[in-house]
Design a protein around this nucleic acid. Structure first.
Lengths: 322, 322
DNA sequence: TCCTCATGTGTAATCGATTACATTCAAATA
DNA sequence: TATTTGAATGTAATCGATTACACATGAGGA
C-alpha cells in the first residue's frame, strides 16, 4: 500500500494525498475527509525511508552505548532511556541505539552522521579530552552531553552534585550531627569536586565540624576507610557514593557501631538496605536531554541544565532523628 | 558527498561505484582500487535512507519498552540491550528503540511495520493472550519473544527457570540441608510453575523434605511468610525471587535466626547483601535473541531456546557449608 | 575474416514519497 | 463581457542509491 494506491482509491493525485498527510492547508475539506477515511480504512503509513530521503531529514537521534561495559549495578540505563523515549514519543522522533568501542568509537559516530541516519546525538560516558566533542564541535553537529568535564565546551545536562553535597550535610545537621566524616571520591573526576564543594558550603553555612577522607567511589574503599578511622569520633558519615556507603555499612554491622549514614546516587540497593542517599532523577535527565537536543536540531537556543537532586530519607538516618 | 561525486572524481559511472560499494564481483580490480581509495579519502558513506528505499529492505530491528514502567530495581535493561547491540554490531543491523503504552501499544508496532521501518521485533514484557503475538503471527512478521506464556505459540528465548529451581534445592542439599522451605511465587505466572517444577524434581531426586508456601514475588510477602512460619523448623530457605529473599533476610536479621537462604534472579542487591541467588545471564539473552531474530529475518529455521542458569554462591549459604 | 562470448562499464528506470510549478475553474472585479 | 484573482488540484522533477539492460571491447573458435 503506497501513496499512489491511496490516490487511485480516492480519485485524486498523489500530490493531494501527500498534502493531506502533511497537513497542508490548501486542500478542500471534503477532499481531505475522503482521503483521510481511505487512509484510515487501509491503515496506510508512508514509507519511512522514502519520506526521509525526500524531505532530507532524519527524525532519528542516536545514543551509543559503550561495548562490553557491563557494570554489576546498572540502574541508570532503564530510567534514562525511558526518559528519552518519553520525550521522543510525543514529538515524532525516534531513537537509534547503537554501540561502539570506548577507544576508536568516533568512527561509528561519523558513520551515522555521514550516512545521514541521525540528526543529533546524546553523548554518554563523557571523558576528559573527548574526541567526540572535538569532532562534533568542528562540524557543528547537534548534540547534548550527559555530565560535564573540565573543558566543558558543550551543552550538557547534569544532576546538581553541588547541591547534593550540600543537602547531605544539611540533612545530617538537621538530625543533630555536629561532627561529620565526609568520605569523598578520588580527586580527578569533576563530580568529586562538585560534591565536595557543596559539602564545604554547607559546613561553612551551618557551622558543623567536618573531616574529609578520600576514597575512590568503590565499596572496598568505603570499608577500608571506615576501618582505618575511629568511627566513634563522628556522629554522622556522608559518602560521595552509595558503594562507599555500603562499605561503611558493612563495617558498621561487623563492628557493632551505629552512626547516621548517607550515600550518594541512590542505587536500588540503598532502598533495600535502608540507606539514606542523594537521589538524582534519571528519568528527568533523559527526558530533558532529548528535549534540549530537539531544540538544538531545530536551531533553537539551548542552555545547559543542572537538575535538582533530593535526599531519599531512610532508616540509616531516620532512626537517629531527635 | 554522494555517489555521483565519487563517480565523477573516479571518472566512472555511478553504477560502477555502487558495484564497488556492494562488492559486486564484476569490477576490474584496478577500478575497484581506485574507487575505494577515493571513498576512503573523502570518507564517503552511502545515504542510509536512499539505500534502504531502493533495496526495499530495512536493517533495523525494533524493541519497544513499556512507557512509565520504572521499577525501582531494573538491572535487566542494560545487559539485555548490550547483548542485543553486541550481536547487531557485527552484522550491520541497527536497533530502533521506541516506547508504547502497555494497553493499546499494538498500533505502535503496526506503524513501525507499515512504514517499513523495521524488519523484525524483539518482544519484551510478554503477557498472556498477547495481542501483539496474534497480530505478528497473522501477518507472518519476524519476531522473537523474551520469555514464555501459556499459549507459547511463538519462538522464544528464556532462562531455564526449571533448572534454576532444581539447582537451588541441589545447592542447599549439598551444604547439608534436609528440610527445606520453598517460598514460591503466586500461582498464575508461568515462571512460578517452571521454578516449582524444578524444585519438585530436585526434591524427588535427592530425597529432601520440602515444604511449600506461596508468596507473590514481593519483599513484603517474603517477610510475612518468614514471620508466620516457624523458621527454626527448617534448615534452609529457597525463595522464588530475590525480593522475597530480602524479606526473609530482613526478618532473620530482626529475629536473630540464621538459616541458609537462596533467592532467584540475582539482582545487584544480592551481591551487596551477600545473598546466594540463581543467576541468569541477561547479556546472553539479548545476544541470542538478536541472533535468532536475524535468522528469522533471513528466512532461516530457528528453534526456541532455554538458556542455562547458575548458582551465584555467596555468604548466605557459604557460611553454612560443612 | 567473421562470429560468439565473457568481461567490464554505462544508461536509465526505479524505490515512494515531497513539492515547485503548471493548470483548471469559478468567483470577483473592471 | 473580459480580465483578474485565488483556491484546489495535477504533472513531473527530485532526493541518492541500486540494478536491469544495453553496449563496447577484445579473446578465442570456426
Amino acid at each position: 500500500m503506497k501513496i499512489k494506491d491511496i490516490a487511485k482509491l480516492a480519485g485524486v493525485s498523489v500530490a493531494t494525498v501527500s498534502r493531506v498527510i502533511n497537513n497542508s492547508p490548501k486542500v478542500k475539506p471534503e477532499t481531505r475527509e475522503k482521503i483521510l477515511k481511505i487512509i484510515e480504512e487501509y491503515k496506510y503509513e508512508p514509507d519511512h525511508f522514502a519520506k526521509s530521503l525526500r524531505k532530507r531529514q532524519s527524525n532519528f537521534i542516536g545514543i551509543l552505548l559503550i561495548r562490553n561495559s557491563l557494570s554489576t549495578e546498572d540502574s541508570y540505563t532503564h530510567p534514562f532511556l525511558s526518559g528519552v523515549l518519553e520525550y521522543l514519543f510525543h514529538h515524532d522522533l525516534k531513537l537509534v541505539l547503537d554501540s561502539c568501542d570506548k577507544k576508536s568509537g568516533l568512527s561509528h559516530y561519523k558513520k551515522l552522521i555521514k550516512s545521514k541516519l541521525v540528526s543529533g546525538f546524546i553523548i554518554t560516558d563523557l571523558r576528559e579530552n573527548d574526541e567526540r566533542i572535538e569532532y562534533l564541535n568542528s562540524i557543528n553537529f547537534p548534540y547534548v552531553v550527559i555530565g560535564r568535564n573540565k573543558k566543558n565546551n558543550f551543552i550538557y545536562i547534569d544532576p546538581d552534585n553541588n547541591q547534593g553535597g550540600y543537602l547531605g550535610i544539611k540533612h545530617l545537621f538537621e538530625i543533630g550531627c555536629k561532627k561529620i566524616l565526609y568520605i569523598s571520591g578520588n580527586k580527578g573526576p569533576v563530580v568529586t569536586e562538585q560534591r565536595l564543594s557543596g559539602v564545604l558550603k554547607a559546613k561553612n553555612e551551618l557551622g558543623v565540624e567536618l573531616e574529609i577522607k578520600y576514597g575512590d567511589f568503590s565499596k572496598e574503599s568505603g570499608y577500608r576507610i571506615a576501618k582505618s578511622v575511629k568511627l566513634e569520633k563522628y556522629d554522622g558519615i556522608f559518602c560521595a557514593s552509595d558503594l562507599m556507603a555500603y562499605g561503611v555499612f558493612n563495617y558498621m554491622k561487623e563492628s557493632g557501631i551505629e552512626k547516621p549514614l548517607i550515600g550518594f546516587d541512590d542505587l536500588p540497593s540503598s532502598k533495600i538496605l535502608g540507606i539514606t542517599s542523594i537521589n538524582q532523577n534519571i528519568f528527568d535527565v533523559g527526558f530533558n536531554a532529548a528535549k534540549m537536543l530537539h531544540k538544538l536540531i531545530n536551531k533553537e537556543k539551548v542552555a545547559s541544565m543542572l537538575l535538582p537532586v533530593e535526599v531519599s530519607v531512610r532508616e540509616s538516618t531516620l532512626k537517629f532523628r531527635k
